[in-house]
Amino acid sequence: MDELTLLRETRIDVTPPDQSALDRGRAALLHAAATEQAAQPRRVPARPKLRWAVGMSLAAAAVVTGLVATSIVGFGTTDSAVASVLHESAEAAIRTTDPVVGPGQYLRIDTTAVNSTTTAGNDGDTSYLTIATDSLFIPANQGDEWVWARGAAKPYATFGTASEAAAAKAPAGTAELVRAAGGAFYAGSPRSGPTEAETWPTEPRALLAAIRDETAGQGVSSDDEALTYIIDTLSRNPMPAETRSALYEAAALIPDVEIQDDRATLNGRTGVAIGRTEGKANTRQEMIVDPSTGDFIGQRRVLLSPESGMPAGTTTTWTSSSTTVSDTAPEGGTPNGAMDDEGCVVTGVSEFQC
């Protein structure tokens, strides 16, 4: 029995609202409670857990019933629903214990990624989608050797005859096994230690302000770029629970962020898709989260209107990842993978001459 059903049964003369009204009522009440807690700056871990009291008074029950019956007067339904889901996800992230990687073990991150490729043809541009999977093994001592098993990209979806022909002509992808101390793959900088996002404030408004400063002047709009930064950061596993929680709360403050699908399935995992439509970019970008665990399931971009042979509604890119602890990592590999196989010479940070 859900909470609002329990409350309604205290008054048998009230006409039961439909499910959408119940959802809006619960979202509004959660949002109101979350807003009260957010009035003063604080660090995310110190945030008290929001719980429903089973023994609510009849007066409180009447308030909730009134909110449901009046379609949540005074609340923006979509905004409050987004705030509720992301606040719930943030709270769950803090409650969830991050994977513990013992000596000699690895944090294993398996990622599946789909991307679009566009080619020019006599009849205009045409596109197709490719898919690739990879596994990253991060040692308990992050200064030790990281291992990255990168799968070859292969065609995933096409859109008509021209698209099929372009996909068939595409060069075969290359699988790689890369190994480097501190995760300094491809002559890059070591990846061990805290990320930039982990050094930023965890109070949501301060964090969003820092993100806006970091992305100023980029992208098609400041709001789109802020959400892009948050999604990209969440996609870079591993992300500590405190940082993940703060990023969820910051995303809830971005204008026009809405719930796009309350049962979105991505690579076999289901969560809530929260996103923002950006007409200038002809896309809607979404992040999929699991409010019950605080997990970031993945991200996707969806076309608003036809483009380069792809119909409106096409998911042009998506990524999904899962994290486990592994006792072993693949043997072999070199710091620069295929670059080493081809005899390329390092000329600078992440730069090669082949």
Rank of each mutant, 00 (worst) to 15 (best):
M1Y: 12
M1D: 15
D2Q: 09
E3V: 15
L7G: 00
E9P: 05
D13S: 13
T15F: 01
D23E: 15
R26D: 00
T35Q: 04
P41N: 05
R42D: 02
R51L: 11
R51N: 14
R51K: 13
A59G: 14
A62R: 14
A62G: 15
A62W: 10
T70Q: 06
E88G: 11
S89T: 11
A90Q: 04
I94E: 02
V100A: 12
V101H: 08
Q105K: 11
Y106K: 11
R108T: 07
T112Q: 10
T119V: 15
T119Q: 12
N122P: 07
S127Y: 08
Y128L: 04
I138C: 06
P139Y: 03
Q142D: 10
Q142T: 08
E145Q: 03
K154F: 15
K154Q: 15
Y156E: 14
T158S: 14
T161C: 04
P171V: 02
E176M: 07
R179I: 07
R179S: 14
A181Y: 02
F185Q: 05
G188I: 01
S189D: 10
P190E: 15
G193L: 10
T199H: 13
A206S: 13
A210P: 13
T215A: 03
T215G: 02
A216G: 06
S221V: 08
D224V: 10
D224Y: 10
A226Q: 02
L227K: 08
P240D: 12
A250R: 04
L253P: 03
D262F: 07
R263F: 08
A264Q: 11
N267I: 00
G268E: 01
R269T: 13
R269E: 12
K280V: 10
K280F: 10
G294T: 02
G294M: 04
I297D: 05
G298H: 09
R301S: 15
L303C: 09
S308R: 14
G313T: 13
T314V: 14
T315Y: 05
T315P: 12
T316I: 15
S322Q: 06
T324P: 09
T324N: 10
S326E: 08
G332S: 09
G343E: 00
C344F: 00
V349Q: 12
